[in-house]
Design a protein around this nucleic acid. Structure first.
Lengths: 213, 213
DNA sequence: GAGTTTCGATACGCTTCAGTTCCGATACAC
DNA sequence: GTGTATCGGAACTGAAGCGTATCGAAACTC
């Protein structure tokens, strides 16, 4: 199927693709989606702008492709306790080593509101893997006998990222490790460790009272 | 102090200030901070652009001033139950009547990341009043004997808005009333209604294990 | 009336930046 | 060699959009 017609001319340098994608991520992490310019990306990659537009039709496509090519490598913690796993996972966010990953997410924030394709790749690259890791963390805790199965793992796994983003938006800078720790200890863990009786009690309450609108 | 020197010339029409501020909020709610143009605001207000720049030095100052002049009127619910109050407060977010207020907040989102002054006025106009209302809601529940005093009301009051914003960012549209209801029933209420014993148990856990970083 | 300021409206200058085009040089196929 | 397609680099086009300048008309002080 491929190379049916051996086209003449100089071959495309595949290393330019990677260099441009990497440069795009770096600029994205540094100045954010809005302030990212194609010129800056090309310059960063040591490439011409034409080389960039020969591969991607627009700035949006470039960024989307760059983000979607991120090697996830979000490792699954297994410290032996639910609290340890949660801390291990979320300490990534404040750790120095993959602060780059966080900066990329912050840089994407401004673009998320209006660009549906950006939301798609954001969900695919950051939200979905995180949810999978969270799910496994809770499954491990259940197997360990630490907690009883919670039906709302999906909701619980959104708490930490939600509050981290909210903190980022309202203060302008990433939250402290202490803040993340408080969210884990005062919100996520108490909910996960709630007794089955408490869960039933809560469920009854939902059924008895129905909201107005 | 005022009018020491009766300056000659036509007086400034104070109604133009209000018209421009209102127009700014409307455009902000419709297209967001980035896509808001001063031309559009002036046109919406039926005013000239010069009239606008005679009052505010820049687009940023115009928006900041417009937002800071919003009449808060975030009413304090008092339905007789904690759950009722929480629903009453957060149903505002999805209700038709002050969806405008929500749209303004959404419109501000993109600007929050880079403009510190915008964050300031956002916190002042939206975050702070909301926190005050939340605090009172919990105080009412304590007086009612419904719950015991929670030391982390501040943290609890951030849960709903955080998850609403996160949902907005990752899906592109405001969350459904059902989602908000789930957050209230499965997260906020169980935490608020936790028994004192559970709270102590949780606190002990925090002290025994210390995070690595 | 004379002078001054604001009004809405429009035109203009200026900057930024996406996307295109051209350049000389290089790499590959035939 | 001859073709052609790529490379980095740079110049160019065109569209937004901020902020300024200018206009005739209206409003206000003296």
């Amino acid at each position: 199927m491929t190379s049916t017609t051996p086209v003449p001319g100089r071959k495309r340098d595949a290393s330019r693709d990677d260099a441009l994608r990497q440069a795009a991520l770096e600029v994205l992490a540094e100045v954010g989606y809005d302030r990212l310019t194609v010129d800056a990306v090309a310059a960063r990659a040591g490439a011409g702008k034409a080389t960039c537009y020969r591969r991607w039709a627009s700035k949006a496509e470039l960024v989307v492709d760059a983000v979607s090519h991120i090697k996830a490598k979000l490792e699954q913690p297994n410290t032996g306790s639910l609290r340890g796993d949660l801390i291990a996972l979320t300490s990534h966010a404040t750790a120095r080593d993959d602060s780059f990953r966080v900066d990329v997410q912050s840089g994407l924030l401004t673009g998320l509101v209006r660009d549906a394709q950006l939301r798609e790749v954001f969900a695919e690259q950051f939200v979905a893997p995180r949810k999978a890791v969270f799910r496994t963390i809770f499954e491990q805790a259940v197997e360990r006998g630490e907690i009883t199965p919670a039906p709302n793992v999906e909701l619980l796994s959104d708490i930490v990222p939600s509050m981290v983003f909210h903190q980022l938006l309202t203060t302008g800078r990433p939250p402290t490790p202490e803040f993340v720790l408080r969210v884990i200890d005062e919100i996520v863990l108490p909910l996960a460790q709630a007794t089955p009786e408490a869960k039933n009690q809560q469920q009854n309450q939902n059924q008895t009272r129905t909201p107005s609108s």
